[in-house]
Design a protein around this nucleic acid. Structure first.
Lengths: 230, 230
DNA sequence: AGAAAGCAAGAGCACTGCTCTCGTTGTGTG
DNA sequence: CACACAACGAGAGCAGTGCTCTTGCTTTCT
């Protein structure tokens, strides 16, 4: 039983625990995730797990980070899959569909990220950097659209001075400037997309919308038009 | 200790339990809601609570119904508070603000309604009828707008035939017809509003948007314009 | 080689949802 | 009016949870 240094073993056990936790999360959801069950699954006793994760919440936080990364990868890959980089409409649609597809494929993970915050307030700074990758995809498209000189496809409601100040938090994250009017539109698109996905996934469109795919496509089409990507 | 019939007592105990559950929900959130703690609070032993609610999930369902009703009341009152009934923009803004205000005042309740579904799948038919009151507010405004002959404030993306069929689920809930183009816009507004509130409340706008009030007002202003209510 | 640190196991604490039993007590019926 | 029945509250108990602490053992560092 040599053949494994302490560090190696630790890495292996850590990822084994995470893998089982991941599976259990997908299976029964975050609320029912049990440290003891995970321990049994990986052939440990529950107290041993606490050598690797100081608490159940920390384990959940690790899962959150993983999920954000996975979603970020999916979104990034979808965007990168569009060959004509200046076809912003196509890139936008790819991103939106990637978000929804991932959410539908991983409902519990999506709920963990965008549903109610499960523990008191987990979100320490560990989670924010992977979290911004998704909204970052929207922001880069917004910048590209601005640089391409696109005109917004719908009349713009005058941006208030308060709102201009409120947007100061976003500007530092931009490499190239985006007009406030366009930024508002893109933020609205962000809310609309996640609003739709959440409402759909959490059952609020039940018996109202009969074809989620069609409706999401319709909404995206309208967003493309409003953003002036067509 | 007479002075109380069995039925009276039952009603009183039931509402006492509900009241404490309500308070605990607002305090610690749905996940940490404990039947035993509620029992202690109302001066009972835990097993006695099960004479009134067959399980913790049923209790939660009752709370969900209560919360839907409260939000529905708030929305309805906000709408009714607008004197000029034909000022649809004002009514729309009143409804949107009522939703957000209620959500901010009752974050745990909002999370229970629009966040991740906590128990496996509670939502039996008990919850659907109070739930549709909120979306119903949007729908009545959409109908009023159609009847007023408002023109949509932004170019319309062509509605696909699939989407037209997808909307069949909503039509039975309408008293007066609404064009599919307008309906799509209103559904988008619905997604946008709840998307914004969820993203804001669950912390996803942290450090990005510096003034939630201003941004929400800006978004609503744009929605009013897009819906042609101005 | 010896001290220090890492690790797995087990026992145990305080808590949870929920079930069952056991007296008591109010209620509708013969 | 009396009696049987159903509702009720309390208590014990089961199976499960997160987490801590102690006890040995083993790898690593000095």
């Amino acid at each position: 039983m040599p053949t494994m240094s302490r560090a190696e073993n630790r890495a292996e056990q850590t990822s084994a625990i995470l893998a089982r936790a991941r599976a259990q999360l997908a299976d029964v959801g975050p609320a029912a995730l049990s440290v003891r069950q995970i321990a049994r699954d990986v052939g440990m006793v529950s107290s041993a797990v606490y050598r690797y994760f100081p608490s159940r919440d920390e384990l959940l936080t690790a899962l959150i980070v993983e999920a954000y990364d996975e979603l970020g990868d999916a979104v990034q890959a979808a965007d990168a899959g569009v060959r004509r980089r200046d076809d912003l409409a196509k890139r936008f649609l790819a991103v939106c569909n990637a978000i929804r597809d991932w959410a539908r494929a991983n409902p519990h993970e999506y709920a963990l990220l965008y549903g109610s915050p499960v523990p008191g307030y987990a979100a320490p700074d560990d989670t924010v950097s992977p979290a911004i990758r998704v909204s970052g995809a929207f922001l880069s498209l917004a910048q590209a659209s601005e640089q391409a000189g696109d005109e917004l496809g719908a009349p713009t409601h005058a941006v208030t001075t308060k709102e201009r100040k409120a947007l100061d938090g976003i500007r530092p994250a931009l490499e190239s400037p985006v007009s406030d009017e366009r930024m508002v539109r893109w933020l609205m698109a962000w809310s609309t997309v996640f609003g739709h996905v959440s409402l759909e996934l959490f059952g609020h469109m039940h018996r109202g919308i009969l074809d989620y795919d069609a409706h999401f496509a319709q909404v995206n089409g309208q967003l493309v038009a409003d953003l002036g990507l067509a």
